[in-house]
Simulated scan of single mutants.
Amino acid sequence: MTSPPLGILAGTGFYALDALDDAHHESVGTAYGSVSVTRGTWHGQLVVFVTRHGAGHEVPPHRVNYRGIIRALADLGVHDVLAVNVTGGIDPDLEAGELVCLDDFLDLTRRREGTFHDGDGSGGVVHTDMTNAYDPVLRREILDAASAIGQPIIDGGTYVCFDGPRFESPAEIRLAALAGGTVAGMTGVPEVTLAAEAGLRYAAISLVVNPAAGVRPGEPITMDEINEVLATGAPKVLAVVDELVHTRSVFRTVDSDTVTS
């Protein structure tokens, strides 16, 4: 019995997934345009990997084809989506390099296509519940995987999404902090909401790479700083994902043996 493929979405600093065996690239056509994906296996688990910005980081966050990506994953049989977001820390207690397993979001974007339900067609107007947009079961898998390898990760945090590609102003970060924001990013929405609309389970690991603007007054945000943290932080994220995928493959083997015995 073959389990559905696991969807993995990543952005800045994650342009390939070297752990994949039998990896091959393909273009998937959708009603929202073609989407480039990489398909392969990881510990025997089928995986569909998408790098949001393209292999050369040529697509800015406000132009990522979020609807196309989520539609392509659903059309390829994906049920679960594991996302990786590189973020700035709004919470002043967060240190660069820390991981957060997100459980809520705040959408401060202004110019994105954020729904599959635009009122056209037989579906009409559809209102989708976002109470558990970050799936509790998939979040628990992330937390358990991190615990199994001794990787600290913060359980819960609110992702505040801005349009980008510019970084946020100190005033915008103060506003986000007042609203309960934990981290700031540019790609988490509408990705998470579209996944919910498509009926996919979605969860996300946030890698904090810098204090957000104004959190530490007088400290500018630089790409050199971000890339330095990415170099040490990306392996932490990949180690957690590796353990999660490995655990899934073990359970799948046990379940298969039980069925056939």
Results as ranks from 00 to 15, higher is better:
119 G>Q: 05
222 T>E: 07
63 R>I: 12
198 A>N: 06
54 G>A: 02
83 A>H: 04
193 T>L: 09
51 T>A: 14
190 P>C: 06
76 L>E: 02
225 E>F: 14
220 P>N: 06
5 P>Q: 06
199 G>M: 09
181 G>T: 04
210 N>T: 04
101 C>N: 10
88 G>N: 02
224 D>V: 10
125 V>E: 09
231 A>W: 00
62 H>C: 06
222 T>N: 07
154 I>E: 11
15 Y>F: 09
43 H>V: 07
219 E>W: 07
50 V>P: 13
69 I>H: 06
17 L>N: 01
232 T>E: 14
42 W>D: 12
171 A>D: 07
183 V>M: 10
24 H>P: 11
60 P>D: 13
178 L>E: 13
90 I>H: 08
245 V>R: 02
76 L>V: 00
229 V>C: 09
185 G>W: 07
95 E>R: 13
234 A>L: 15
201 R>Y: 06
86 V>F: 11
251 F>K: 09
34 S>T: 13
209 V>Y: 00
22 D>G: 12
118 D>I: 03
32 Y>R: 02
203 A>C: 09
184 A>W: 06
253 T>V: 08
5 P>I: 00
234 A>V: 14
203 A>W: 02
111 R>I: 13
37 V>L: 12
257 D>I: 08
101 C>M: 11
67 R>I: 11
155 D>W: 04
115 T>K: 06
168 E>H: 09
171 A>P: 13
212 A>S: 15
36 S>G: 09
232 T>L: 14
156 G>C: 09
48 V>M: 08
136 P>C: 07
61 P>I: 01
95 E>W: 02
188 G>F: 10
230 L>N: 10
80 D>C: 09
55 A>L: 13
240 V>F: 12
66 Y>A: 08
238 L>S: 00
177 A>F: 05
56 G>N: 14
165 P>N: 05
200 L>E: 02
16 A>S: 15
166 R>H: 12
163 D>V: 01
21 D>W: 01
63 R>F: 15
218 G>I: 10
139 R>A: 07
246 H>S: 15
90 I>A: 06
140 R>F: 05
107 D>T: 03
183 V>L: 12
138 L>G: 01
151 Q>Y: 05
77 G>V: 03
157 G>D: 07
20 L>K: 07
209 V>S: 12
159 Y>D: 07
218 G>V: 06
204 A>P: 10
214 G>Y: 04
8 I>A: 03
133 A>L: 10
120 D>E: 12
188 G>M: 14
233 G>E: 07
82 L>N: 05
82 L>P: 12
206 S>T: 02
100 V>W: 08
64 V>G: 04
58 E>N: 09
74 A>S: 14
10 A>Y: 07
32 Y>M: 07
154 I>F: 12
178 L>A: 13
75 D>L: 11
87 T>W: 10
81 V>Y: 00
48 V>E: 05
21 D>R: 09
75 D>V: 03
239 A>H: 05
77 G>N: 04
189 V>G: 01
250 V>Y: 01
169 S>C: 10
215 V>S: 10
82 L>I: 13
4 P>W: 08
182 T>W: 15
233 G>W: 08
150 G>A: 11
23 A>F: 02
211 P>I: 00
229 V>L: 10
88 G>C: 06
66 Y>L: 11
20 L>N: 05
227 N>H: 13
125 V>L: 15
90 I>F: 11
37 V>P: 12
226 I>L: 14
114 G>P: 03
112 R>E: 12
196 A>N: 00
57 H>T: 01
155 D>R: 01
237 V>P: 07
